[in-house]
Amino acid sequence: MAKVNLGGIEIEVDEDGFIVDPTLWSEKVAQALASTEDVPTMTEEHWKVVKYLRDYYQKYNIAPMIRKMCKDTQVDLKHMYELFPTGPAKGACKIAGLPKPTGCV
């Protein structure tokens, strides 16, 4: 797997650019990932979603269902796509340093 420079450190990423080791995540890394996902600047709202995802992941070891994510963050799906144009699963989860989900999803 390839190593790329994200926010000043060398980090291993998978074929789609998701970081492989979620513990290497930092806000700087998030900033760098955001620029690859059509999010030019991380606003307070972006951080709210990203931090929610991190907390959820730390607690449950998995990304939340999209519906749950909207419900808990009070950001509706339409606005979620405005914030993260590449989508909540791909964009927001990638920026939050979560792995890609697999299975019947």
């Binding site: 607690k59 449950y60 998995i62 749950k68 299975g103």
Partner: peptide, 26 residues
């Protein structure tokens, strides 16, 4: 990966019991 998850947690997505309960609550 789903196979490995299944082997570890019983399901493809790697959902552990407390996460499963969280989903059901919703």
């Amino acid at each position: 990966e789903p196979v490995a998850n299944c082997y570890r947690t019983g399901n493809h997505l790697g959902i552990q019991p407390h996460a499963l309960m969280d989903m059901f609550e919703m």
